[in-house]
Design a protein around this nucleic acid. Structure first.
Lengths: 157, 157
DNA sequence: TACGATTAAATCGCATGCGATTTTATTGGT
DNA sequence: ACCAATAAAATCGCATGCGATTTAATCGTA
């Protein structure tokens, strides 16, 4: 309003942006859910399967680094995928602490059935390739900056 | 790669964008958490309090419409806020089905202590006002479009 | 070699989200 | 006035996320 005091107003936008991301994330889940229901996968499970389809035999740690998740989230999730028969969990031979994740036959087979999830999503989003990649880039940069800030905050406290 | 077959590649970007949003949302939570810990609030609880600080006496339905959440999420959350003494839940007089949410004294008092959350967030994000509002707008538009698509998908099935 | 520090997973507890259902109150048509 | 349809919350079950801690294996160094 006044020239001298726009700071309060501006700061509110930070909250708005966070809510935009929060509610957009929920919206994505709502689109993914009906698509993934047919595959008996949740969205985080789908993310893990995507990684494994790209490359097998990753450790829990490596998966966590890619998805920004910790073992306290991944271990139960991976056990559920194992229970449904999509993956195997094997202790590393050289290092017994490491658990490596391998696709089973049905885990690999699911890849084909997951083929149209991406195209449905792309259609629902309705942005062209350029906009998509630009937007992803902006969000990823912001994410990495925030993770840095979060570390500062928690280290200080 | 080939000129004739870029569709597969393009569709993958849809998955990437969704993951960008997913992981950015987690990153926001990591920044908010240490800030909100001092207020004994979670991020969704903070969102509800923001609404109430702006305007008291909303119904659960109205809060849900703003935050895109259902009663199955809000009811337990609101009961926790009531248990910590920040809000009151009262049945509407004209319509006994409706539960309206009111700030208590300590709920109102918390507003002052929450003042620097926004400014810390704004600093962590590190974008200027114009970029912030443009980005929010893009994400909100996408969210609303996706919710529309999700309804189509679930209605079809 | 011994042993404390480090590391990878796992475990525990709590707070979301949400699909599905239930409970209670209100409304609308006859 | 009656009663099915509708509407608002609440309840239940399950799958994340994550802080905090624990367990088990490996490493580093005296």
């Amino acid at each position: 309003m006044m020239e001298g005091m726009p700071k309060k107003q501006d700061d509110a936008l930070a909250d708005f942006l966070c809510f935009s991301v929060y509610s957009l994330n929920h919206a994505f889940n709502r689109v993914y859910r009906p698509l993934l229901d047919g595959l008996d996968l949740t969205y985080p499970q789908y993310l893990v399967m995507q990684l494994l389809w790209a490359q097998d035999g990753r450790s829990v740690k490596e998966i966590g680094k890619e998805l920004r998740l910790e073992s306290n989230t991944l271990t139960p999730l991976l056990k559920r995928l194992q229970a449904t028969g999509l993956i195997d969990r094997r202790r590393g031979k050289s290092d017994e602490r490491v658990v490596r994740i391998f696709l089973t036959g049905s885990g690999e087979a699911l890849h084909a059935r997951a083929a149209d999830v991406q195209s449905c999503l792309a259609a629902a989003i309705g942005l062209d390739t350029g906009e998509l990649s630009r937007l992803s880039q902006v969000l990823d940069d912001l994410r990495d900056r925030l993770i840095g800030e979060a570390e500062k905050l928690t280290t200080d406290a």
